[in-house]
Design a protein around this nucleic acid. Structure first.
Lengths: 119, 119
DNA sequence: GAAAGTACTTTCCTTTATGAAACTAACCGG
DNA sequence: CCGGTTAGTTTCATAAAGGAAAGTACTTTC
């Protein structure tokens, strides 16, 4: 016996929630936004350059995160035929669609920090 | 003996990177954006209502995440003096500043999903 | 007085994430 | 041949995140 056909179980917007969780499954982790943000700013960066830009990351994490991002077509990996073999990482066109999001995140972070010191 | 005063160790924007990491330290985890997104849509929600809206979350996680968000002044917690004690959660004014960010994230997630099925 | 609802907390356990350090491998300069 | 550079991988270990289930506490309803 059902109590009510419709309870106040309003799915405010399941599609939206699902989209958020989809996005975060790709962008989660401690370093993804920082790596993407760096690649959006400096378009062509080598592995060691990224290491220097992304403060505190280790080789294992950087390598793994770049693989994840490449798999999701957010980052391009190009092996250059140079003397001491170099690899160039860059954002894809698709990755660039994250630019406004990352800007918003960075700006929010800056404002948040200021609001703490302002008190 | 220094090789060069300045190597091509360009700190593209350390402040920006730090801001991203600040923001993520508050917003990281599997559920924060979903909870905030839900509270932005449905302004006044009880604990059990949130449970129904945020698909898959358990009591422990919801409770813990709400505490975190409250601590960071993104969510208000109000105990109502009702018969079977109810608690109402809502976003703070400060939490509302995340609305554009969460919208951007949700939209990106929707477009990402579409781009996969479009192929 | 038993069942059900609200709102959690606590315990125990598993899975993921992250990290430090060492190691491979190829090449160049001296 | 030694040391330095690039670009990683592998191993070992720990820390953080997440989840299932049960317990607490109070109240209303049947």
């Amino acid at each position: 016996m059902k109590k009510k056909a419709l309870i106040n179980n309003t799915p405010i917007c399941k599609i939206r929630m699902k989209a958020i969780s989809d996005a975060m499954s790709i962008l989660s982790g401690k370093w993804k936004f920082q790596i993407l943000g760096t690649l959006i700013e400096g378009n062509q960066l080598g592995f060691m350059e990224l290491m220097r830009e992304v403060d505190g990351i280790g080789t294992k994490m950087l390598s793994k995160e770049l693989q994840d991002l490449e798999m999701n077509h957010l980052v391009n990996r190009t092996v250059m035929d140079t003397k001491p073999i170099t690899v160039i990482y860059s954002i894809t066109e698709h990755g660039k669609t994250l630019a406004p999001l990352i800007d918003a995140l960075a700006n929010w972070g800056i404002e948040y920090r200021q609001s703490i010191y302002a008190k």
